[in-house]
Design a protein around this nucleic acid. Structure first.
Lengths: 213, 213
DNA sequence: GGATTAAATGACTTGAAAGTCATTTAATGA
DNA sequence: TCATTAAATGACTTTCAAGTCATTTAATCC
């Protein structure tokens, strides 16, 4: 019944990251357009007005989410990919299972779904996502593929399209899980998709006549 | 300056499909949440109130778009896929290039992007899309793959995951084009992705030692 | 041609959420 | 301890779009 402490505290340093955390959760759940700042504020434990002390607009808040949470997460995957050495047949599965893991964690998949949905209405968003996330990732994968081609390990062809061949199915499975959560009864397991696709793509889906591998 | 004809005409039969056409354009452009019924009405050449003579809510209008425009388009691809006979190595490329064509046409890709973005906030939407579009498509492709496996043409493994392997890269390329239109300078060509991926997946990305194919 | 029907209109109501700001109050420091 | 600063509040204003409905008028039918 009594109020033991002060009604609120001044925490200039801690607020922004708490707000970003809350915003990420609400954006991921509802999408940008339908996310309510009141909900974000409540989740962050502040009043709506306080959000405006740190972020000018709803869009600025979203940009902060991408910059502070998504870009670093992608950066970690990227860094891991850069380090990968050895023959492509060994690098590819590690890349794929690493990506599968990254997509399972955090809310990266949910934010990705959101960006896909709202990129057209918020072009700035699309640019950030392209420049900071998708572009570097694709470039890194394509570079590995090109190197493997130069060594004669990988079939000729546009390395960027080969990169699509490699990661496309994983993206599809991720989006399937995101979009049809609660609708489809049998969501694909990302790790299983990564593993089976790796084998299919690298070795070929078609079996040589009479082969029983 | 003068008004030659009547201010409007009664066209009970023609209105719904015109409204659906306009709605598809606006939804594809702006996404569901940000699409304005005023804009849809203007594009359809009617007043906003007239929309409500034929559709109860904005969501009902979207459902009509899916039912009248998207499902038939998908149905045509499906029908083509059902007919496909012969060895899998011949069926697959036709399936892929057919899908590439379908995804290029109309605004199917834009609507797909929209559904991905807003499925979580409009669960009914996700269910329709799953039951009417993605489910049947995946099932048809998986069935062909399973048949090929039974004939010993295709590597063992979950046929649904093989279906992801087959069409995932095409979906990725499509979404890339949709999301980064106007941002990326080098959108992937769907037909090229379909062709190169088909060859890579079926024959294998890794070259046998000393092979120069 | 006049009466009747219902397609179509568009001004209006309603509700919701982004953004504002005068006020409150926790923290600081002289 | 008390004056000062600025973090935080939350009621308020503003804006915008979905949905309504009394009115208008094109079409139909006797």
């Amino acid at each position: 019944m009594t109020e033991p402490g002060p009604r609120w505290r001044r925490r200039k340093e801690a607020r922004p990251s708490e707000m970003i955390e809350a915003a990420m959760a609400v954006f991921a759940e509802r999408g940008f357009a339908l996310a309510k700042l009141d909900d974000i504020a409540r989740l962050a434990g502040v009043a709506k007005g306080s959000l405006y002390l740190y972020f000018d607009t709803k869009e600025a808040l979203f940009r902060a989410v991408v910059a502070e949470r998504v870009v670093p997460a992608v950066g970690r995957v990227l860094a891991a990919a850069q380090v990968q050495e050895g023959p492509f047949a060994e690098v590819a599965p590690r890349l794929l299972s690493g990506a599968a893991l990254a997509l399972s964690q955090d809310r990266v998949a949910a934010v990705a779904r959101m960006v896909i949905g709202e990129a057209r209405t918020f072009p700035d968003l699309a640019r950030v996502w392209h420049d900071e996330v998708v572009g570097p990732l694709l470039a890194a994968v394509a570079a590995r593929i090109a190197a493997a081609q130069a060594r004669g390990e990988v079939r000729p062809g546009d390395p960027r399209i080969h990169a699509f061949s490699l990661v496309g199915p994983l993206l599809m499975a991720t989006l399937y899980r995101e979009v049809f959560a609660g609708v489809a009864d049998d969501p694909p397991d990302l790790a299983q998709v990564a593993q089976q696709h790796d084998r299919s793509l690298l070795q070929g889906l078609i079996l040589p006549e009479g082969d029983v591998t």
